[in-house]
Design a protein around this nucleic acid. Structure first.
Lengths: 227, 227
DNA sequence: ACCCGTACTAACCGAGCGGTCGGTTCACTA
DNA sequence: TAGTGAACCGACCGCTCGGTTAGTACGGGT
């Protein structure tokens, strides 16, 4: 009778697809406005213009709704950042892309931010089981930094883990600032973060970094023309 | 009959002082363990070994209990950091002190951390009214940075606000990391943050900063001996 | 004409919430 | 010894929570 998934492989009705998408959408907005704690079935329901029971009809449980919303947000984020990283041509350029990608995505999707950050320290009841707890959260960034170290772009005595943590924190802070002050320019902030990264991690003439020029851009080892 | 404040100027019984202190104490621990959302009167009461009604007898409302706990934490933090800053002899040294002070305090009082950070984005019902929302949160740090700029210790093209935000974020991240991984060395992390700050903000030979030597330490303009 | 699955609603359930209330214990004082 | 107020308990109130259940409107297939 009710829902979501009694047989896990049944395919979804057109209506059901639409409702699920709508519910995921409003849930993201509700979390953005009231936080996880204030995100009740009641509020989700009336934001969608239906009843609590109707929400439970489409998702077996409240946890499932939130879970779906969270997954949607994470998928969008990873896709955005992943695409930017793929486009980068050097290891250090990938780190830059990661930084700009994260800040850029958050700036473009403010509603998604709270869904992510508040999920990080919610042990209560959100139902998000496999969220990265802190030790793993900046692991991908640390990996990129290590790659840049191996490529001799970064100082060899740089601690990748700590650098990733600091950099990640700076990104979070920039995003948080934007959330409470929408006039905050995330573009120049991203530039500042990248600049700080360059000054901290790059080896060689730091004045180049100050001018926003990376060593590779100045002297790429391969064929040299770019449009 | 019941309390907290029916006349705002009445003085507290010995018992009342003790109970209030105990309740503030357990509330901090409850918040640290369950978060604000999981911090109910019931849990506070049984953590203190008394009844809900007894808690309300000493504090008029749940908000008041949490408020008292929050104020206590903030007072401890500001006192600790303030003392360190006062001891610093140069503007740039004060910024360093601020960074090390925050990280040091958090590392020494893990239970207090969550009380602070979770208060920042809790619009629900915590009852903390005058908590600094983000635009103001790193203002004191930005002021210190501006002072260091005026003292010509920092680059003149440094953006104090953005730098403060990034630095603050890095501090937050270091603390958060320590919270989920108690083996994380906040000491070396603090060194790394200060090093990043020096490389980013200091003008002059950055290799000095790399060796942990600030320009003032190397050549203070005043009388030169220190014990 | 009948039925059946889809998509919902209104009403309800038990648990936990913040807070109130009447009453009890007990040290101290008049 | 009687009275008083501080300090506390147990029971209760109204409310919201996530979730359940019985029932219904309706479009399409037989």
């Amino acid at each position: 009778m009710n829902t979501g998934r009694q047989s896990p492989d049944r395919q979804l009705t057109f209506t059901e697809q639409a409702r699920r998408a709508q519910l995921v959408d409003v849930t993201i907005r509700v979390i953005a406005e009231y936080g996880y704690a204030g995100c009740s079935l009641q509020r989700i329901a009336e934001a969608a213009g239906i009843t609590k029971a109707a929400v439970i009809y489409h998702f077996a449980t409240k946890r499932a709704v939130i879970r779906a919303a969270y997954d949607t947000v994470i998928a969008g984020l990873t896709e955005h950042v992943g695409a930017l990283i793929t486009k980068a041509t050097t290891p250090a350029g990938q780190v830059d892309a990661y930084v700009r990608g994260l800040i850029g995505y958050m700036g473009a999707n403010p509603d998604h931010v709270r869904v992510i950050v508040e999920a990080l320290d919610d042990d209560h009841d959100t139902g998000i089981a496999d969220r990265p707890h802190s030790p793993e959260r900046w692991r991908p960034l640390a990996d990129l930094i290590n790659a840049a170290k191996s490529a001799k772009a970064y100082r060899q005595d740089l601690d990748a883990r700590i650098t990733a943590i600091m950099l990640g924190g700076a990104i979070d802070a920039v995003v948080a600032e934007f959330l409470t002050d929408r006039s905050f320019d995330t573009g120049t902030a991203a530039d500042a973060v990248v600049d700080m990264l360059h000054r901290t991690a790059l080896q060689g003439d730091p004045s180049m970094a100050a001018r926003g020029i990376t060593a590779w851009d100045a002297a790429p080892p391969g064929p040299a023309h770019r449009p």
